[in-house]
């Protein structure tokens, strides 16, 4: 009796292992060849940038509250861009800042503003390039965002 029990259990174990192996193989098979991912929307980088920029302004105003009057409206502009881009793309509005964004060197107000200005210059370039490629129904929005980022560079001068 006990021998039979053992062998049955072993059988179960073995088949369990076999099942596991099959499942693993299946995983590897499908994992290695995933469904072709949907190409990201060409405006996704603009959206990510808008969210990251708004967060960068917020971080600076936390450490430099004296700059809030000057910086808060600029952060609001980026939030307005993010909302509009998310609507156009049909994407959920990312609530958290993009990970891996560099912290501004906010120990000094001047350094913080200089960093924000550099980020705005880079963002203006992204938007200008996107404007060149954008289809007719999106280009006006992208152009306005490029222009707004240019005015931010000026406002931080």
């Amino acid at each position: 009796m006990s021998g039979l029990g053992h062998s049955r259990r072993r059988l179960l174990v073995v088949s369990g292992a076999g099942f596991g192996a099959a499942a693993l193989t299946g995983c590897a098979l499908f994992g290695g060849d995933p469904e072709p991912p949907k190409a990201p929307d060409p405006l996704q980088p603009l959206l990510d940038e808008a969210v990251a920029l708004a967060a960068a302004y917020d971080r600076v105003t936390v450490t430099q509250p004296g700059l809030s009057g000057r910086l808060a409206p600029l952060a609001d502009d980026h939030r307005a861009h993010a909302a509009e881009l998310a609507r156009v793309i049909g994407a959920a509005l990312p609530s958290a800042p993009a990970p891996g964004g560099s912290e501004p060197a906010a120990s000094q107000a001047n350094a913080a503003v200089t960093d924000l200005r550099k980020a705005e210059q880079a963002a203006q370039k992204t938007a200008t390039a996107a404007c060149r490629q954008a289809p007719g129904e999106r280009v006006a929005l992208v152009g306005s965002i490029a222009a707004c980022r240019a005015t931010h560079v000026e406002a931080l001068r």
Partner: peptide, 10 residues
Amino acid sequence: TPVTLPFPGR
């Protein structure tokens, strides 16, 4: 103030 518009040209 503010010195900027969110969507210049709109």
